[in-house]
Design a protein around this nucleic acid. Structure first.
Length: 272
DNA sequence: CTTGGGTCCTGTGCGC
DNA sequence: TGCGCACAGGACCCAA
């Protein structure tokens, strides 16, 4: 999309998780995309109009890239299949001057889009309270210790809280805690510094490996080329309920519990 | 202030 | 085969 001009914006329903901003189609039409970037789980698309298109994929959202004209050519798989008519759950369709169509498709509609002044982005309600990037310099064990100090919520919930660290989801929190040997039920404020010293590089490792593997495809997730991610094949805890723990010499099995309404997978024997 | 539960939405897979 | 229930990569909102 970078450098491309949006020639047409088809907003096919009034909302996703929230109502779309006023006149979104008009404000997008004719705009040139200056660059794409990311903050936390938000895709940010800076436009030459001085506005930024903010996109969240939620649970089931995806951006589908297809040629606007021509046949399927060497496009691989059903995901990339050529279509002119919008398909089910295609909510926003952007046609670019270079002949590319970008379609936001989101079955569950937990995704979001907003269009705000680029200058005001840091103050935006969804952005302002985000914690540091887990792969950035602002995330280290000193920061984490200070942030968790006095917290009574379980560590699992704290790591999922985007105000503590932004970008971790359910899978990667479970995997990180398993690797670090930390029980997800441990109270955040009662975890010693040496344990946090160990946890932080593990979180970075898990994310780095998952990104290299193209993410985790449980169902909807695809890489930008349409391929499945394959980090799900490397899960040690997530989704492995009642299977053998993979920690060396551990005789335990993976349990599933529910914390803050989300499934947590862990080994009660080697995670303490 | 913090914390936990309910909620939004659609689709799928399972037990009965 | 049909029906109801549980569950799914998120995260806001509000009651306690």
């Amino acid at each position: 999309m970078t450098g491309a001009v949006i020639t047409r914006a088809d907003i096919r329903r009034p909302d996703l998780r929230w109502p779309f901003p006023d006149n979104m189609a008009t404000r997008l039409t004719g705009a040139t995309v200056l660059r794409l970037r990311r903050r936390s789980k938000y895709i940010l698309c800076d436009l030459d109009t001085g506005e930024t298109l903010l996109i969240h994929l939620g649970m089931s959202g995806r951006m589908i890239i297809t040629p606007l004209t021509g046949d399927r050519g060497d496009m691989l798989g059903e995901f990339h299949k050529f279509h002119t008519a919008p398909e089910k759950h295609d909510h926003v369709v952007l046609d670019m001057a270079d002949g590319t169509r970008i379609t936001f498709n989101d079955t569950r509609r937990f995704g979001a889009m907003d269009l705000i002044s680029t200058d005001a982005l840091d103050a935006h309600k969804l952005i302002a309270h985000l914690g540091p990037e887990p792969l950035g310099n602002g995330f280290d064990s000193t920061y984490l210790a200070q942030k968790l100090d006095g917290k009574k919520s379980p560590i699992k919930s704290a790591l999922l809280d985007q105000r503590v660290v932004s970008g971790l989801g359910n899978i990667y929190v479970c995997e990180s805690l398993w690797r670090a040997g930390i029980s997800p039920t441990r109270l955040s404020g009662e975890i010693d510094q040496p344990i946090l010293d160990k946890l932080v590089p593990i979180i970075r490792d898990v994310l780095t490996e998952a990104i290299a593997a193209g993410g985790s495809s449980l169902k909807d997730h695809r890489q930008t080329n349409g391929d499945l991610g394959y980090f799900q094949h490397s899960f040690a805890a997530y989704g492995r309920e009642s299977e053998k723990c993979r920690t060396l010499n551990c005789t335990g099995s993976i349990k599933r519990i529910v914390q803050a309404g989300r499934s947590t997978f862990f080994c009660a024997k080697c995670q303490n």
